[in-house]
Write a protein that binds this DNA or RNA. Structure first.
Length: 427
RNA sequence: GGAGGGAUGGCAGAGCGGCCGAAUGCGAGGCUCUUGAAAAGCCUUGGGAGUGCAAGCUCCCCGUGGGUUCAAAUCCCACUCCCUCCGCCA
């Protein structure tokens, strides 16, 4: 969430910044006025409480002095003040809750550098690497759902039988390929990132911390009986790993990575780009993440983007880097770059990674802070993350790109060790 | 799942319902002494909200949420987590 103080000190500027993300001025005003009312009430409550405390202290003193009637009188007075206090307090609590909810729903401020825009069409292609529109043979122009069915490595029908549509089932070398990709991504980042295997079911506050709740509850799977949520990405547990902690500046940046399954209901996306592996409810992903100071954030953003690109390059897939415009930026994002690989079979650019800087938006929600090395007040951390590798779409692009005239698929060299040395996927 | 025990500041660990945001020890920081270091001594050392130019003042936080009371770290209830034992089980 954003700093409430922005609503007091810099309301107009904040409105202007949020307007770039298509937030109405009224919504911001509403939060600002809730905040003003809350503070006004809080100072009344403080004052009353101070009075009750003072009276209580006097009751104790009177009793010790053996002045029972005096104590009784003071106690009566305090009781009256206490009743008044309770009433004000419950009003205050209600306001507080309302404000918190309003604040939780306000998105992060976009970075000034983020390009203006209202929809995905306004996103900016920063660079395109290795793409040659004329460099493809007809045998590469087969979509992965056909390639997968043909080779018996992707069985959408059986996946659907077990769990419903958009729950793919990989088989044989297809399953091995998926695992190989995770392995590769983990190994390529192990030089700097600590591998974590977090729980993939989490509590409500954990999902709230990343900005997923309360606004986007419909997109996540919820296990009612235990009140747990299935993570949509490893970002969720990793961001909350240090929730409520005060880290030492010397320990920053924290570099973490994790493989997890990811679960998404894709509630709003019915019917859009849902063929094959383009959009699925469950998939595997390796996420890399950093917790750092504001000063370190920019460099880490580039680092994570570079690492995500490196894995795609090593797989030999053409890709482009797209900077997300303000109107398309996610709730929690301040600035974000997508990596899209080119899939020749379906002739589409597929988003395979989103590398984002969250400024202190998530850290404030999760309360992840650090103590500056030179002393001084505790500061909020910044968080950043990106997919090192999201399996299904990369899997799709590989199967399409490396399909040969005879229908078999060549395994990219870097995956040999993870494919038990096999160089070819065939029937 | 059942039975017990526990949760207090960076850590360890006290805490009679009022004088407890909290003893004490360790750790950390500063200073004195010293050529330097060690030792010793002195001092400092949690987070948050509000208000104020500031000094300051007020309030909240002793796992979380409720309750009792004039007054709760202290009493009661619920929940969460940790530990021990039993059961079950990959």
């Amino acid at each position: 969430m954003i700093d409430v103080r922005l609503l007091r000190v810099d309301l107009e500027a904040t409105k202007a910044a949020l307007a770039r993300k298509k937030v109405s001025g009224e919504e911001v005003d509403r939060a600002a006025s809730l905040d003003a009312r809350r503070r006004q009430l809080a100072s009344q409550v403080d004052e009353l409480r101070a009075q009750v405390k003072a009276l209580s202290r006097q009751v104790g003193e009177a009793m010790r002095a053996g002045n029972a009637p005096g104590a009784r009188a003071l106690s009566e007075e305090s009781k009256r003040a206490g009743a008044e206090l309770a009433a004000l307090e419950s009003q205050g609590a209600a306001l507080e809750a309302e404000l918190r909810d309003a604040l939780l729903r306000l998105p992060n401020l976009p970075a000034p550098e983020a390009p203006d825009g209202v929809s995905p069409e306004d996103n900016v292609v920063v660079r395109t690497v290795g793409y040659d529109p004329d460099g493809y043979q007809p045998h590469q122009r087969v979509p992965h759902w056909d390639v997968g069915a043909e080779l018996g490595i992707l069985d959408l029908g059986r996946g659907a039988k077990i769990a419903g549509s958009m729950f793919p089932l990989l088989r044989g070398q297809g399953a091995t390929l998926a695992r190989a990709l995770c392995q590769l991504a983990l190994d390529r980042n192990a030089d700097a990132y600590t591998e974590i295997r977090p729980p993939s079911l989490v509590r409500t506050p954990v999902l709230e911390a990343v900005g997923q709740l309360p606004k986007f509850a419909d997109d996540a799977y919820h296990i009612e009986r235990d009140d747990l949520w299935a993570v949509p990405t490893a970002e969720v547990p990793l961001t909350s790993m240090h929730a409520g902690e005060i880290l030492s500046e010397g320990d920053l940046p924290l570099r973490l990575m994790a493989y997890t399954p990811c679960y998404r209901r894709e509630a709003g996306a019915a019917g859009r780009d849902t063929r094959g592996l383009l959009r699925v409810h469950e998939f595997d992903k390796v996420e890399i993440l950093a917790v750092c100071t504001r000063a370190q954030a920019q460099a880490l953003h580039e680092e994570i983007l570079g690492r995500a690109e490196a894995v795609i390059s090593e797989l030999g897939l053409p890709y482009r880097v797209v900077e997300i415009c303000t109107g398309d930026l996610g709730q929690s994002h301040a600035r974000s770059f997508d990596i899209e690989v080119y899939a020749p079979g379906c002739d589409m650019w597929l988003e395979v990674s989103s590398v984002s800087w969250f400024s202190d938006y998530q850290a404030r929600r999760a309360s992840v802070r650090y103590r500056p090395a030179g002393g001084g007040v505790v500061q909020l951390c910044d968080t950043l993350n990106g997919s090192a590798l999201a399996v299904p779409r990369v899997w799709a692009a590989i199967v399409e790109t490396y399909r040969q005239a005879d229908g078999s698929v060549q395994v990219p060299t870097c995956l040999y060790p993870y494919m038990r040395g096999e160089k070819l996927i065939r029937r």
